Computed example of a mutant assay.
Amino acid sequence: MTAPLDVPGSAAEAQPESVLAGAGKDIQGRSLTRIAWMRLRRDKVALGGGVVVVLLILVAIFSGPIISVFGHDPLEFHQEAIDQSTLLPQGSFGNMGSEYLLGVEPVNGRDIFSRIVAGAWISLLIGFLATLVSVVIGTVLGVVAGYFGGWVDQVIGRIMDVFLAFPLLVFAIALAGVVPDKGFGLEGNGLRIAMLIFIIGFFSWPSIGRIVRGQTLSLREREFVDAARSLGARHGYILFREVLPNLLAPILVYATLLIPTNILFEASLSFLGVGINPPTPTWGGMLSEAVRFYTLPHFVLFPGLAIFITVLAFNLFGDGLRDAFDPRAH
């Protein structure tokens, strides 16, 4: 048997300077969150979507100061900007200019820019809170169904099937027509917002519930769950300390993809006239009013662009999160 060749610079010979350079340094581990962040930083498209999402949230939070600086009261009429003979905005492109950044609406002359900014907080509020309701209900029932299995899984699974087959849009239209002006300590648009959050959130949880159930079925057979059982851990401890933390990544990813769906649903209801009561501005309500003035493309373009950019940004960011947390995608 021949001895290995000690060729200078080869892999067979350990270089003294490299050994000394690495001496005394601890090997640093990286968590799943850190690894996902490193992957997400390389996805410029997803980061761009995330930046737009943050900007939209800031616009919704500071809508009041933004309107006071760059626009006008979203409910204020500006008849001086309207041609009284045609009831159309004066000037080109709906009277767009320095005083009205995106022009004004026909007939009443309300500032389009201010109404889009004011409508952002309603769309995002309903989108976020309805998603939160869906995530909480879907996660709890999905984890319980996947972990316990048997008759529990069968009962929850059939409930999911019933909710998935439910005509949500028809039910929302019917319910919006019978909701009183006051109820549950709320009135007006406050009651409408709560109703939309309940309808969208309560009836859309089975989608995320199925995903959580499938992930739980896989996790309950893992070694760390068996180890917890062997140490005498109770079901509650295993569910909340072992299984649920490993579900945070898919839950977060699906939530970012569910938010734009809920925003679109709210816009659809407002477009159909069963959402937020006018004259409170919403993107869907602005599109519904713009249908009558099809000869003025800017009246339809700007609220439509607001919905398009919001949904696209959330989808791009959600796709990037999914790829970042999925090791098989790299």
Rank of each mutant, 00 (worst) to 15 (best):
Y294R: 08
Y294L: 13
V53F: 02
S92V: 13
I193A: 06
V53A: 07
S18D: 14
S230H: 00
L219S: 05
I200C: 05
S114E: 11
V178Q: 10
V179C: 01
D153H: 01
L132N: 09
A46L: 02
M96V: 15
V117T: 10
P65Q: 12
R192G: 07
L58D: 03
N246P: 02
N108T: 13
R322M: 01
G103F: 02
L129G: 04
L87W: 00
A12C: 04
P260R: 03
P278C: 12
W283R: 08
V253G: 01
F93G: 01
F314E: 04
R322A: 06
I307M: 07
A233P: 00
S207M: 14
K44A: 12
A194P: 00
I122Y: 13
P16Q: 13
D226L: 14
D161R: 03
E76V: 01
F128H: 00
N277W: 06
L312M: 14
P260W: 06
T139G: 13
L231A: 15
V152E: 00
L258I: 03
A267N: 08
L269W: 03
M1G: 15
P180Q: 15
A12I: 04
L244Y: 03
V59G: 04
G320A: 05
F317R: 04
G109Y: 01
S270L: 07
Q90E: 06
S85M: 11
F293S: 08
R234L: 06
L217T: 02
K25T: 09
F299C: 05
V311C: 09
E223H: 04
I197D: 03
F128A: 11
S92E: 15
V53Q: 02
F240M: 12
S18G: 06
D323L: 08
H298R: 07
R41G: 15
E80I: 08
A324T: 00
G318Q: 00
L102E: 11
I200P: 02
F128R: 01
F198S: 14
N277T: 13
K25M: 10
G149W: 04
Q28D: 13
W151P: 05
R34N: 13
I122Q: 08
I193N: 05
G183S: 09
G284P: 11
N108I: 07
V311Q: 02
S230V: 09
T310N: 05
A11F: 08
V143E: 01
K44C: 05
F77T: 04
L32E: 13
S114P: 10
S218Y: 01
I263K: 00
V19R: 10
L287W: 11
F171R: 08
V69A: 14
L287S: 08
A60W: 06
S123G: 15
W283V: 04
V52Y: 00
I82V: 06
P260F: 08
G50S: 14
I116S: 09
L316N: 02
R241K: 15
E187R: 12
T280F: 09
V300L: 12
